[in-house]
Every structure is written in structure tokens, then in C-alpha cells.
Design a protein around this nucleic acid. Structure first.
Lengths: 253, 253
DNA sequence: ACAAAAGTGTTGGCGTTACACCCATGG
DNA sequence: CCATGGGTGTAACGCCAACACTTTTGT
């Protein structure tokens, strides 16, 4: 008889053993021109002493996104975008990982989320600050020809890889790179975000024309700053335009 | 005390109630120039008599993708891409839905998957063929200015919407549209897939140049066919190139 | 002969690249 | 005065939309 395991059937725990459901967080930021991820040192077996992604169990009456926001606040004190266009971090669901052997203790299905955060004055204020650190992605993942990385716990290397790849491709056609910047930022600062995330260098002149020429992408605040040195630069906020068309082009190398 | 619900902690079922985990399938195909989804009539409460997406519980020792493949085979007899570039269907994880109230009976977290299938001779051979049908997406989802759709069970309208949007955007920059075609197909047939999925019409001449001019995208098989009438058309298989650069442009209206 | 679908050639516009050049500040 | 980063101008190139035109079949 087919269809026995159909959605339609009543739930019988003896046939369908329960799963633990967690959220894991890939929290990315740009610090000192390097793409960094939030990582915690594990204090328990398995994988004691290894880096892991922050995360935790979803509560009984809690939505997945709610659980991710709660975990993020517990670990970083960060709060995702309160209002449209305002700073805060960007949070979105990434993917779900459910290999039966991914956690040796039990069957865990983890719903990973991606967070793009501005560089924070205090790296992990308000939470488990002792164990949480910003770690350059390059030292966690083997790049092409890079040195052997510090191994991550569980399948977190896979999750981090997927999160980084998602961030890299999303800034191509959306205004999401601004989520890595302070509420007000210069065109040059935004360009350095692209350069850090993609690992390339971009022509400053053409980049400037491209982003300022896309209507609704950047909104000038009127202020200027010289915090990067040189001639004073205009300050901008992220505009309402969330789609970038035509997209920013990612150079070959 | 923060961090109480941390990933690190041992699993205590009295604190973290168990979840049921299911997979739901958004199976899309193009039939008679219309984008269609596989839907089943529910025979049980809740939502008895409504359309729902096929799906079912993940088994205890089964990966998420494995569960999706099994459900797909049970419902359609279809098997996703056996070998590279060969026909078969395309399957990928879509997103995970875990609102606490999405199923009135219990706490269910559903990992939705997206399947792009060629138009099958027998719509749902090999499975619960009685209840499963191809239904035009336009009649399941309210388009802009369209008539009121037949309501879907649970949050399946949301899931279907997300799946359709993913399919629409993915064919833009990948060779995935070929997953909707027979193993060998003509350029015109591929163009009609784009037109059905996007709901637009494309210039046949420019489309032809674009897809045949992208190296590795299409591989001529040497054969020709006149099954569409008119001058004989070359037959192609999908090539190894999975990324389409520059992307196909989706017209405004 | 005609309709229908497959292909090719050509042209103008627009976006991008590459780079010369000017601007405004700090040291 | 010079270094540094911000910003504008401009020409060559490439891709693409638009459309005229040819090819090869079925009826």
C-alpha cells in the first residue's frame, strides 16, 4: 500500500519518532576589510573546543523566525531591521539541514538563518560574550589554495559555506550590502563591503556612478564625513529600492 | 541567565517538546502552455476536500532530500535527475515553514521542496493517481486581477507562491528551464517554457541566438523534428553549463 | 501557393569598462 | 605642497531589442 506516510494521516509518534528542531545562525559582518562570521567555542561534547555557529532549540510556541531573532539577541544584543531602510541587521531563512547523523546525540533538524550585520563597536554585547567571537571566514573555510581551516563542529562548515555563498550572490542584485554598513555610510564604505565580501577590487569611479545612478538605491542625508581621509564624502542611507537592476557585476577574479 | 536554550545543552524532551517534521512538494510542470502544479484533494479533516500540496512525514532514519524523493516517487512515479544533464526532474530544497498554528492538530515543521518536471504522458502514474492532479497555478493562486482562487489547505498557498517565484527567478540565470522539457527538445519548445512560466512572449529570433550562443548551454543531438510544424528544428539536450551568463532578461509585462 | 515555424543579418541604443582629469580635505 | 580618497567626463566596446529577410517543411 502506497501513500501510507501521507501528510493526510493522523500523527502516530510510534511510527514517526519526534525530531528536535533548532535554529542555527550564520551571522556575517565586515571588519577591517574582511568578511567575518560569528562563532562560539563549544564547551560540551560532542566537538568540545571547536568553533560552532550560534544557535539553539526552537520553543514550543515559537515561530522559526522568532526563534532566530531571539537567539540573535541572546548572542549579540542585535535586533534585525525594526523599520524600513533603517540600519539594524538583515535576517532571512537560509536552508534546513536534517541529515540523520548530523548530531550524534539525537535526530536534530536545524533551520539555518542568515544575518547580515554592521560592524559592531562591541563584538558581542549583551550575550554569551565570553564564548562568541568574530572570526574571519577565510580562517574557518578552506578557500581555493588556502591553508587548512580550523574545523567547525557538526555540519556547520557546510552551513557557513552556504550562507557565505548566499550573501555573495544576493548583494549582486539587491541593496543588501547596506546591511553591512552603519545607518549612514559613504559610497566608498559601501564599495569596501563589496570588495571584502567578493574578495575583488572594484573601480571606485564606476562604482560611484552605478550606485548613485540607480534611483531609490541610495538617499543622500545631506551630511558629509572625512572619516576615511581625503575629500569629504557625502553620507547616504539605504533607499527603498531593494532590487538592483541591472545588477552589480562581479568581476572574474 | 542567558543562553539557557543554547545548542550546546543536552536534549530534555520535557523542556523542548518534540516536533513532527514533514516534507511538502511544489511540483511544477508546463502543460498546454500553462504552468501547472501537482495538487491532491484532501480526504481527511482538517481542510477536507481542499487542494493541498503532496507531502508526508520524514522517517526516523531518512535525510530530508531522501524523504522528498520518496514522496515524489510515491505521488508521481517520477525520479529526479539520475545523471548529469539527463532529463529527469530537478529537485531542490525550497524553504521551511514552522508557524506554530500552521497545522491545528500538532506542531509541524514542514521542509518544502521544489520539483521541476517535464510534462508527463500519464499525469501521476504509479502513485495516488486518483487524488493527484495537475492544476494550473493561475487557478490556485490569485494573480494580479485574477479571479478568486480555490483555497489551498494549511499554508500551502504561501508555499506554492514561494515555489513559483523561485522557479521564475531561477530560470533567469540558470539552465533549469530544460528540466521542464523532454530529454530532447527544440529551441522553440524551450522558449515556450519561458513564456509559460513568466507569462510573457519572447522574440523567437533573439531567444534562439541567446541560447544557442551560450557555450555549453545546449548540445545539439544531430536530430531534427517537425512536431511543432513548419521548418524542421534541431534537437538539443541540456548542456553541462548550469549558469547562464549574462542572464535571460525577463520583460516588464 | 500559402501558412507556419526555424533560423540569419543588420542596426541603433544603452550600459559598462578603462582611464584622464578635477575637487576638497589633512598633514 | 603632497598624499589621499571623492567625484565627473569621455571614448571604445559589447550586448541586446527590434525587425527585415531567408529557409524548409506540411497542407
Amino acid at each position: 500500500m502506497r501513500g501510507t506516510y501521507d501528510h493526510d494521516m493522523p500523527y502516530d509518534p510510534s511510527v514517526y519518532p519526534p525530531f528536535a528542531v533548532t535554529v542555527d545562525l550564520v551571522v556575517l559582518t565586515v571588519r577591517r576589510n574582511a568578511l567575518c562570521a560569528l562563532a562560539v567555542r563549544r564547551g560540551e561534547e560532542p566537538f568540545r573546543g571547536r568553533w560552532a555557529l550560534p544557535g539553539g532549540f526552537v520553543r514550543a510556541d515559537e515561530d522559526l523566525a522568532t526563534a532566530a531573532v531571539r537567539e540573535l539577541a541572546e548572542e549579540t544584543g542585535l535586533r534585525p531591521q525594526e523599520s524600513e531602510g533603517h540600519a539594524g541587521a538583515h535576517l532571512e531563512q537560509l536552508a534546513t539541514y536534517g541529515d540523520p547523523s548530523r548530531d550524534p546525540r539525537m535526530r536534530v533538524v536545524s533551520v539555518a538563518h542568515l544575518v547580515l550585520a554592521p560592524d559592531l563597536p562591541a563584538p558581542t554585547a549583551g550575550g554569551d560574550a565570553e564564548r562568541a567571537r568574530w572570526v574571519p571566514v577565510a580562517s574557518l573555510l578552506a578557500g581555493p589554495g588556502g591553508a587548512a581551516p580550523e574545523p567547525l563542529a557538526f555540519d556547520h562548515a557546510r552551513i557557513l559555506t552556504d550562507g557565505v555563498e548566499r550573501a555573495r550572490s544576493k548583494i549582486e542584485y539587491s541593496s543588501l550590502a547596506a546591511a553591512f554598513c552603519a545607518p549612514e555610510f559613504t559610497v566608498g564604505e559601501l564599495r569596501r563591503v563589496y570588495e571584502a565580501v567578493w574578495g575583488v577590487s572594484l573601480d571606485p569611479r564606476n562604482f560611484h556612478r552605478k550606485v548613485t545612478g540607480t534611483p531609490g538605491f541610495l538617499v543622500p542625508t545631506g551630511g558629509t564625513t572625512t572619516r576615511q581621509g581625503g575629500r569629504p564624502a557625502q553620507l547616504f542611507r539605504a533607499g527603498g529600492a531593494t532590487l538592483l537592476n541591472p545588477p552589480m557585476l562581479r568581476p572574474e577574479a
